[in-house]
Nucleic acid binder design. Sequence first.
DNA 1: CAATATACGGAACAAGGTTCCGTTTACAAG
DNA 2: CTTGTAAACGGAACCTTGTTCCGTATATTG
Lengths: 201, 201
Amino acid sequence: MSENITETPRRVRSDARRNIDALLEAARVAFATSGVHTPVREIAERAGVGVGTVYRHFPQRSDLVAAVFRHELDACASAAPALAAEHEPGEALERWLQRYTNLLATKRGLAAALNSETPAFEGLPGCFQEPLMPALALLLDAAAAAGQARADVKPGDLLQAVASLCLPAGDDADYAHRMVTLLIDGLRYTAPTLAAGARSA
Amino acid sequence: MSENITETPRRVRSDARRNIDALLEAARVAFATSGVHTPVREIAERAGVGVGTVYRHFPQRSDLVAAVFRHELDACASAAPALAAEHEPGEALERWLQRYTNLLATKRGLAAALNSETPAFEGLPGCFQEPLMPALALLLDAAAAAGQARADVKPGDLLQAVASLCLPAGDDADYAHRMVTLLIDGLRYTAPTLAAGARSA
DNA sequence: CAATATACGGAACAAGGTTCCGTTTACAAG
DNA sequence: CTTGTAAACGGAACCTTGTTCCGTATATTG
């Protein structure tokens, strides 16, 4: 009666475990240096395995990308509550968005993966935004309730917008931060509409 | 004395002219319905020519894309002076940016072409921004001089940012306008916010 | 040690961009 | 109209990259 059917129906073979780790590491390095479009063959070679092994563990290219970045995304998401506790709602929101921006601008390829139209990356945006959505919603609602941010912006839209803005950042993380700062200012300070006329800042 | 050496060193052969026009039209339709990633073979077939002919007139895929959209971009650029004459600087800037947004969100594939990393689209961003840069610089400088916009934002950065924001718009032009509106608000009203120290990894 | 499920490697296939080159054609000079 | 020729044509062929398939190798378990 040593059968444990609850979880892990079958152990992972040791060589498989080793190869998965080698692949993740090789992919991480490759994405960081050559971008997410690094050919699968090349990643496989760097990891010392055949392409068949890659597809055994990561049925689609996007699964490999997702696996490489998942850890960092989770860390980013879990940082939200602390920020909310330590700062004013508006400032917490801004700090978190800048942190997210930094993640996108720093980890080369993350933004590209989130915006690529390649069918191989199908579903990645949703997969990546899922863990972040609750975090941002928390901050956004708090800021809106405190009158420190618009209430008419959806978390998903905002995540997508930041990801898009970070796309051209390439090696210039500063560009991303400047543009996201503009967006945040627009988020915090609703301008009078065109009809209301323009006043100087 | 019929020699006219001023321009057109050599006339274009009639069949070439016809094929170029057919290609541009086929590409326009294909981009609008299937996106900029429509295979070259398919565009060639729709135009009734061979792929060799496509590459004869448009050495790179991006040249075809550029040719298809150039006309609309020029029209957008040339609309700036009129807007500057008819409206307050800040409003003229906003109206022009929204028009640019509409162009990007409406012509399917334009935003994608401007943000794609495919080597085939190499240089397209620069090629497309070149005619728009002077137009936006005009509006931006005027608005900044009138105190109706920040003075620390570069025209090129802004063009790029708007193009990026329009990327996920897909069929939903409204998303693009909402996000660009946020950006514009941030452009017009500098927030007295925290220093740029909020970027933890 | 043997049996077997699991995993491995890489050849093979599909798709799309680009090149090459033998053939066809517009057009201008005679 | 004929004809010479530069220009253009078409599409087979090539290359790169994602993905699948399957015969072979091996970790694990009793």
